[in-house]
């Protein structure tokens, strides 16, 4: 630090960060404020504080159906993506083989493909094999999109592992399976849990592909679009606030797990 000379610049940069954060969160905050506002249309000045819109969505069976679908899909996708991602991450950590680059590219590419193209491709393919219009198709598609996230998280944790630990376990008579169970999985457990939360959050929020392939078994984000097309109702703000709250909770949980994990690194 060079002391007082930079005080103005420091303050300016701090302000700048604040503006960035505000810029990102203002729409969400706005939606939250208007979800608690009694007025029919989002306008200033605000009306009274009311939980009317939350009550309405609480009583709406469509919202519940969408929420239920989202949770089911999210839970199953989280497990599938984490298992697949763990396998991929461990393969990368442990093995060298011909075509490893192709393997890694194939495993990590999905997030870079435009979701509309991915959704279209999924729909074209899944409808050919008669898997479209069902929850299964959403699970398949989200499995593709989420496993790279799980793989990246677990790979990061594995890279912090001392390679001698594995060798020590083999030395002590453990075969590969025992080593996996007693050494690798315990070590990567925080990352595995974090991957479960993150992939669930990704599946929760994913709209475009779910819109293409979900058919009648719409997930919550797809339902929200339906609401928007029907009428502009402050209920959307209420649903949005709840959806944001659940996603951010999952993300924060994952972050806490990863943070604690890297603290007690050997």
């Amino acid at each position: 630090m060079t002391g007082n000379r930079n005080r103005l610049i420091n303050a300016g940069l701090k302000l700048y960060i604040l503006v960035c954060v505000l810029f990102i969160f203002a729409p969400i905050l706005g939606s939250f404020v208007f979800s608690l506002n009694s007025d029919r249309f989002p306008s200033l000045p605000l009306g009274e504080v009311s939980t009317e819109w939350y009550r309405l969505i609480w009583e709406d069976p469509f919202v519940w159906a969408g929420f239920f679908n989202t949770v089911i899909v999210g839970l199953i996708v989280a497990v599938i993506a984490t298992v697949l991602g763990f396998g991929g991450a461990y393969t990368d950590f442990r093995y060298n083989f011909l075509g490893k680059k192709v393997y890694l590219a194939l495993s990590l590419l999905p997030p870079t493909i435009p979701v509309v193209i991915l959704g279209l491709a999924m729909l074209a393919f899944l409808s050919r094999v008669n898997l479209s219009d069902s929850t299964v198709s959403v699970i398949i598609a989200h499995g593709v999109m989420c496993s790279p996230f799980a793989m990246a998280i677990i790979r990061l944790r594995l890279s912090q592992m001392d390679r001698d630990l594995e060798a020590a376990s083999w030395n002590l008579g453990g075969n590969e399976w025992a080593t996996l169970r007693h050494v690798i999985i315990p070590f990567t457990k925080p990352a595995i849990l974090a991957a479960l939360f993150i992939t669930m959050a990704v599946s929760f929020d994913e709209f475009a592909v779910a819109w293409f392939v979900s058919g009648l078994n719409e997930t919550l984000p797809v339902k929200i679009l339906g609401f928007l097309q029907g009428q502009v109702s402050p209920r959307i703000n209420a649903i949005g606030s709840l959806a944001f709250l659940s996603s951010i909770t999952l993300i924060i949980l994952a972050q806490m797990l990863l943070r604690n994990a890297s603290k007690d690194r050997p």
Partner: peptide
């Protein structure tokens, strides 16, 4: 450990594209 991810991404990602 390695094949499930490969099969999943081949069947449901590479092939559809």
């Amino acid at each position: 450990l390695s094949l499930p991810l490969l099969i999943w991404q081949l069947a449901f990602f590479a092939f559809p594209l």
